[in-house]
Computed example of a mutant assay.
Amino acid sequence: MMSKKIMLACSAGMSTSLLVTKMQKAAEKDGTDVTIFATAAADAENKLDQEHPDVLMLGPQVKYMLDDFKSKLDIPVAVINMRDYGMMDGEKVLQSALAVIDAQKA
């Protein structure tokens, strides 16, 4: 199975960095082959061009950018659940990102 690439974007890229670590731990535990990285929303377009992720997950604080990204990108874009984000629940955010990717391919 191909490795999936998940990109997180938040206002500064700091809080999502912690979430990335938790998601990577969850992926290792589940045996899921994924690459996960975070960036500041301001730098998201550069990162998208360089990395070509399978999905872009936006932090709740930048959810106002959702439509803008959706109109520009050919990959799925979703907003991270506020509660999962607040709890830094790497497992839940990982599962929702993978579900978004799978829904796109269906």
Rank of each mutant, 00 (worst) to 15 (best):
V93G: 04
A12S: 15
T39L: 01
L58H: 04
L66V: 09
E45N: 15
A97I: 04
G90Q: 05
Y85N: 13
D43E: 08
L98V: 11
M2H: 13
Q61P: 07
Y64G: 05
K4F: 11
I6W: 03
M57Y: 06
E51I: 13
K5E: 04
I75S: 00
L98M: 14
V79C: 08
V79E: 01
P53H: 04
A12N: 06
F69M: 01
P60D: 07
M1L: 07
D30M: 14
M88I: 08
T16F: 07
I101S: 00
I6A: 03
L48D: 01
D43G: 09
N81H: 13
A27E: 02
K5I: 12
F37L: 04
K5V: 12
M2A: 14
A9K: 02
A38E: 05
D54W: 14
V100P: 00
L98A: 10
N81P: 06
K29H: 04
L73S: 01
L19M: 05
S3L: 05
A38Q: 03
P60M: 13
A99T: 11
K63W: 03
E28M: 09
V79R: 09
P76I: 14
Q50R: 15
V34R: 02
V100T: 09
P76Q: 10
D33G: 05
L8G: 00
Q104Y: 06
E45Q: 14
S17T: 05
D89C: 12
E91Q: 15
M82S: 08
S17M: 01
A42E: 08
Q50H: 09
V20H: 02
S3F: 06
N81T: 13
M1P: 12
A103Y: 11
G13W: 13
A41Q: 12
D54H: 15
K72A: 00
K47S: 07
A12F: 10
L73M: 07
K47H: 02
V100F: 07
G90D: 01
T39M: 03
D84E: 06
C10Q: 01
V77R: 07
L8R: 02
G90S: 01
R83T: 11
A27K: 09
D89W: 14
K105V: 08
V93A: 04
A41Y: 14
A44K: 08
M2Q: 13
P76F: 12
S11K: 09
F69G: 02
K25R: 10
M23T: 01
M2T: 13
A97S: 03
A97M: 02
K4S: 03
D74Y: 09
V79S: 05
L98P: 03
S11G: 10
M88L: 04
V62H: 06
A99R: 11
L58W: 10
L18G: 06
L58N: 03
G90C: 04
S11R: 12
V79F: 11
Y64R: 12
A26C: 09
K92L: 04
K22M: 04
M82V: 12
K70C: 00
V20D: 01
A78P: 08
V100Q: 07
T35Q: 05
K22E: 05
K92P: 01
I6H: 01
T39V: 14
K47P: 00
